[in-house]
């Protein structure tokens, strides 16, 4: 039940953004816009990012168990993965939030194709990771 509730909260967040600011709640796009010197409207992006960070701090205080990390991944795994995520989300114009939630909600063909593609790539990535570690 918790998970459906979490999903509903995310849906409400995306709804607020669209209703009040007219923007799509795509996190990679919001962050990429902050990094791009040619972006004109940085204020709301920075404040959304600040909201995410403060939300994390608040959760860490009230529900620290939500940050449990169980993984055999090494630091370089996170570095490589982070780099791929950074390049891939800007090249493909979106991540789990922009394509997966907002785009699919609008029945955007681009977002549906992107979501199916990145979930498939994610499945393959987990298989390769486990094969290399002899976990499969």
């Amino acid at each position: 039940m918790d998970q459906v509730l979490g999903g509903v909260i995310i849906g409400i967040s995306a709804t607020m953004m669209l209703l009040f600011t007219g923007r799509v709640t795509g996190i990679s796009g919001i962050v990429g816009g902050i990094l791009n010197p040619t972006t004109a409207d940085k204020n709301w992006r920075v404040l959304f990012l600040l909201g995410l960070i403060l939300g994390g701090v608040f959760l860490k205080i009230i529900r620290p168990e939500l940050f449990t990390v169980i993984s055999s991944a090494a630091p370089y795994d996170y570095v490589v993965a982070g780099f791929l995520v950074g390049v891939g989300t800007l090249l493909g114009n979106g991540c789990t939030s922009g394509h997966g939630v907002c785009g699919i909600s609008r029945f955007s063909p681009r977002s549906i194709v992107a979501t199916v593609t990145f979930i498939t790539a994610g499945v393959i990535s987990v298989v390769i990771f486990r094969l290399l570690r002899g976990e499969l």
Binding site: G88, L90, T117, I119, A121, I124
Partner: peptide
């Protein structure tokens, strides 16, 4: 882009 992102995500 989606392939590269998905590989990193997984």
């Amino acid at each position: 882009g989606a392939i590269i992102f998905g590989l990193g995500w997984g």
